[in-house]
């Protein structure tokens, strides 16, 4: 289905299609990525009451699934963030182009363009778009932790995982200043960088040699809600099994 992209003159120019591979066999649910994401992207915290109502703003969350019953019970972890769909259901429904498709395959979210219709949130099958129900609060001096590369979203705005687009931009600019190409593994979103088990790998899916491409070709590879045809940029590698 990606061929349809070629209808669009702006998408043919890019060399990159940023993607992520997550090896579920390695994920231990340690939450390092979750906090890392908060720190990198100025994700606000909402407090207990709001969190109990389901309004936490985690751009990335570890979903935990139960299987079986005691004593043969198993739990599985799955980090889920914005899947950066190629055919993103959220993009077409935004009336003001606040979310759109970048020419490097990112599902871009332009915060200050957002008027807050929340249509994208309803359309997203992964429910990975977070709404700012209130203005974020950073009691002094906590505001000094804020990353100046990422704006703080005010109330009434939709936000979500961007694959740390600010890091992609920085690495690309640095590489350009040094007159070279971006190398595989040079760009790391905060989650991939902190992941202690190296379960999260980020890279260019257009480069067949990149680690993420290799993982995407694994026999264990699948995509979340694949049947919806959203063509996610996040590839999961399902957990393995050892027989003894």
């Amino acid at each position: 289905m990606t061929t349809r992209l070629s209808d669009n003159p702006t998408t043919r120019l890019s060399d990159h299609r940023w993607g992520m591979a997550i090896d579920l066999d390695k994920c231990t649910g340690c939450q390092a990525c979750v906090v890392s994401c908060h720190a990198e992207n100025n994700v606000p915290i909402v407090g207990e009451e709001e969190a109990a109502y389901g309004r936490t703003a985690h751009w990335l969350r570890i979903e935990r699934y139960w299987e079986g019953e005691y004593p043969n019970v198993k739990a599985k972890f799955m980090p889920v963030m914005c899947q950066q769909c190629t055919e993103a259901p959220c993009e077409a429904v935004c009336p003001v182009y606040a979310t759109y498709h970048s020419d490097e395959g990112l599902n871009g979210q332009i915060y200050n363009r957002c008027i807050g219709t929340r249509f994208c949130g309803s359309a997203c099958p992964y429910k990975q778009r977070m709404y700012n129900w209130f203005d974020p609060v950073f009691p002094e001096p906590l505001e000094q932790q804020l990353n100046p590369d990422v704006t703080v979203r005010s109330r009434g705005i939709m936000e979500k995982c961007t694959f740390c687009v600010q890091r992609i931009r920085r690495v690309k600019e640095d590489a350009k200043a040094e007159g070279r190409e971006v190398t595989d593994g040079e760009i790391q979103p905060a989650c991939a960088q902190s992941c202690p088990t190296n379960a999260i790998v980020f890279g260019d899916l257009n480069d067949p040699e990149s680690r993420v491409s290799q993982m995407a070709r694994s026999s264990r590879a699948f995509r979340l809600l694949e049947n919806l045809g959203t063509e996610p940029g996040v590839v999961y590698l399902k957990g393995g099994e050892t027989r003894v």
């Binding site: 390092a32 906090v35 890392s36 908060h38 100046p148 960088q193 902190s194 202690p196």
Partner: peptide, 27 residues
């Protein structure tokens, strides 16, 4: 101003990785 804590990739113990509590140190 300190903004973000990452693991030191050269340090042999954690090899560039860091846990949730380590990330939160800046707070």
């Amino acid at each position: 101003r300190a903004k973000k804590i990452e693991g030191n990739p050269a340090y042999p113990l954690n090899q560039g990785k860091l846990c949730a509590r380590g990330q939160a140190g800046v707070q």
